[in-house]
């Protein structure tokens, strides 16, 4: 599916996750955040960078990983990305949400 954000066409899946990370920019992240009622702060961006690093290094994303990341603690993570922090933050980061095999 094609979605247009700030006049830039990006490829997303049915749930709105980017399917091509190379199309991601900070602006796009910011717009997706707005759609989820999140106003991005420095702390938000630190988490987003950490998530992108993990995914680029092919490491699985988990709440445990956040705990050990040293970036934030889990309560803060929930406060920053309400309503399922991993699924919301990955959408903003332009990477796939954590999945099972089915």
């Amino acid at each position: 599916m094609i979605k247009t954000i700030k006049q830039i066409a990006i490829n997303v899946n049915e749930e709105g996750y980017l399917t091509d990370f190379s199309q991601w920019t900070k602006e796009i992240g910011e717009e997706i955040a707005k759609e989820n009622n999140i106003e991005m702060t420095d702390k938000h961006w630190q988490v987003i960078s950490w998530i992108q690093e993990q995914v680029t290094a092919k490491k699985p994303l988990s709440i445990r990983g956040i705990k050990k990341s040293g970036v934030i603690d889990i309560k803060e993570f929930y406060a920053l990305f309400p309503g399922g922090p991993l699924k919301v933050s990955t959408k903003i980061a332009g990477v796939p949400k954590p999945k099972s095999c089915i």
Partner: peptide, 29 residues
């Protein structure tokens, strides 16, 4: 801890009915 019982596109489309059919409640995230 995931966002659904089925997290892949085809699977959730094809199998989403199963939990309801069996009256199994779902808590995600």
């Amino acid at each position: 801890p995931l966002s659904g019982a089925f997290t892949k596109e085809y699977s959730s489309k094809k199998l989403g009915y199963l939990l309801e059919e069996k009256n199994i409640k779902l808590e995600t995230d």
